[in-house]
Design a protein around this nucleic acid. Structure first.
Ligand SMILES: [Mn+2]
Ligand SMILES: [Mn+2]
Ligand SMILES: [Zn+2]
Ligand SMILES: [Zn+2]
Lengths: 150, 150
DNA sequence: TCCTTGTTGAAAGAACTTTTCAATAAACTA
DNA sequence: TAGTTTATTGAAAAGTTCTTTCAACAAGGA
């Protein structure tokens, strides 16, 4: 299963960085893994407790910091909910549904020219970027159409 | 003066939306106007008090909400400081210096093709986007070079 | 199995943001 | 300009979110 593979990869990364592979950390990891939506610390805590009943909210915060540092999780920013997190894949390009708040990542080709042009016009060096797109996912488009006809 | 023009424009927008043009609001408006950096509510409060000594922090929060709603100010999101604000120009493209935290906006050409390609691959409709670039401003690049040679 | 030490969860504390409410001042009227 | 109405304000209190502290615990190596 590809989900398990991903989780093993994340667990290994933790170990390789010298951190212990604990039940609370595995729980947070798995929650992020199983939810493509951005979840906030409290939501992750609730879901995580079903996997590791003793899990404390403090540990969720600590683990999210750790995972973000290791590049295994990403902080997301949106107007209605500030610090939510998602499992990090390879890039930093998020497509967020404004209705159901589902978050997916998309491969981002064609940004390089833009970055080069900004570099030339401003004199800034550019180290990283964040591109968030906001719109409606196919499901929500359909639901909206159905509601309109009802 | 272009700064004044911009400020008048913002003040008019407030009035046209049916809100009163008060001293505290003008102070917040002017602070955002005069600082291209992203400022957090507390910083805006400190600077605003020099313009309107009675200004309270609560009013800063309220005014920032209001200005964001009217599209006159924008919330910025960065790793180390979550809710900072900047005067809103026409777009949503920020270039943030990782060292001095200066924020500038840049015109963003060439994103349309990327958006269209994402639309086709995902089936999402896309309503808005946020592009944040992170790097070093020219001043900080120079300072860094100087330090290295010292 | 035992030991070492990184990790945990609860409680307390700090930081940040919102609500409440009486006093104030902006805008309109006469 | 003075008077009236009502949105707005600031202080205090309350509510949230996040961090620090510290004794108990458990992961991983011996
Ligand atoms: Mn934010
Ligand atoms: Mn944020
Ligand atoms: Zn959706
Ligand atoms: Zn700089």
């Amino acid at each position: 299963m590809s989900v398990d593979t991903q989780q093993v990869r994340m667990a290994q990364a933790l170990r390789e960085a010298g951190y212990r592979l604990t039940q609370p950390r595995l729980a947070v990891l798995q929650v992020l893994q199983e939810n493509e939506a951005g979840l906030n610390p409290e939501e992750i805590h609730q879901l995580g407790k079903t996997l590791c009943p003793s899990l404390g909210l403090v540990t969720v915060y600590r683990t999210l910091d750790l995972l973000a540092e290791l590049g295994l999780a990403r902080r997301l920013h949106s107007e209605h909910q500030c610090h939510s997190y998602a499992s990090a894949r390879t890039d930093r390009h998020y497509l967020i549904c404004e209705r159901c708040h589902r978050v997916i990542e998309f491969p981002c080709h064609g940004l390089d020219e833009l970055l080069e042009s900004v570099r030339q016009h401003t004199g800034y060096t550019i180290n990283e970027h964040l591109l968030e797109l906001r719109g409606l996912c196919p499901d929500c488009q359909e639901n909206q159409a159905v509601q309109r006809n009802a």
